[in-house]
Write a protein that binds this DNA or RNA. Structure first.
Lengths: 144, 144
DNA sequence: TATCAGTGGTTATTACTCGAGCAACGGAAT
DNA sequence: ATTCCGTTGCTCGAGTAATAACCACTGATA
């Protein structure tokens, strides 16, 4: 299992924020209520997203959270790496010096290739895309 | 980090076995010495491979391990899944009922796509391929 | 301007699970 | 009896998931 709960909640949260009118500040408790996360945990999850500039926050009365970037400019890899750090299939991919077997280990290249393919997919889909897909899904549910 | 040490040692071991003359029985301690694994840990690692029929074993004097399948017929996904169980990027991919959000969760499809791409790569390379690649690597090291 | 309620920010702690490895004993083959 | 592998259970450490206590900022208002 690669994706943690934190990453999953983070993605839900960002999609939720992306659905709000642009520049509208959203309360933490509203995110919690709609996305089924506890406030304490959501606090922890949002901090890395703020650090990398995906979300911005406003303290004090009337404060809350909002997207700091255009949904077109955010992809799933950005969020995953903000929450979990660099994505690495195997420790020998962390950097070229970690594994002294690199020189003759043939599996190394396969891990690298698999990781690259995975990253390509995660980069290909922006949050804006996902919001569109959700709208279509919700509509088709309404019809069915 | 998706790949565990057990999987990595398992792959090393299988490549080692594949390099031996066909049907030659190899002692556990020879595997340990050449692949830098402790006997106790290797014991644990080999059992799942035996269970799924990749490796077979022989007890008693003159016993040991050998490949039960043609190296052409073994790929990295086989080994990985023998050691770690079904590969799943996220818990919502385990089966369609786990995540009650499936119906409207757009990320689900991205995880599925990323996982499929990864699996494709892991299936594409047989142990026989890896052995060939290692030979080439070793030769080029000898020249350098 | 002092203050207070409403907000997010930071840090520490807990419980739990899983990866990694070890060791002791059991069972089969010769 | 000896030489092998097989099974089981254990420990230790790291990482996930979540909680809680306390801190810092903002803005309204007394």
């Amino acid at each position: 299992m690669v994706i943690t709960r934190a990453t999953e909640y983070a993605i839900r949260t960002i999609i939720y924020l992306a659905k709000q009118p642009r520049n509208e500040i959203v309360l933490k408790k509203d995110i919690c209520r709609t996305q089924n996360v506890t406030p304490a945990f959501l606090t922890k999850i949002l901090q890395p997203l703020i650090k990398v500039g995906i979300v911005s926050s406003q303290r004090g009365v009337g404060g809350g959270f909002l997207l700091a970037k255009d949904p077109e400019e955010i992809n799933l890899l950005d969020i995953l790496q903000a929450e979990e750090g660099e994505l690495n299939l195997n420790h020998c991919l962390v950097d070229d010096d970690v594994c002294e077997r690199d020189k003759h280990c043939s599996a190394h290249e396969v891990w690298q290739e698999a990781q690259n393919e995975m990253i390509k997919v995660l980069c290909r889909h922006s949050i804006a895309d996902l919001v569109k897909i959700e709208k279509v899904k919700v509509e088709s549910l309404g019809l069915g």
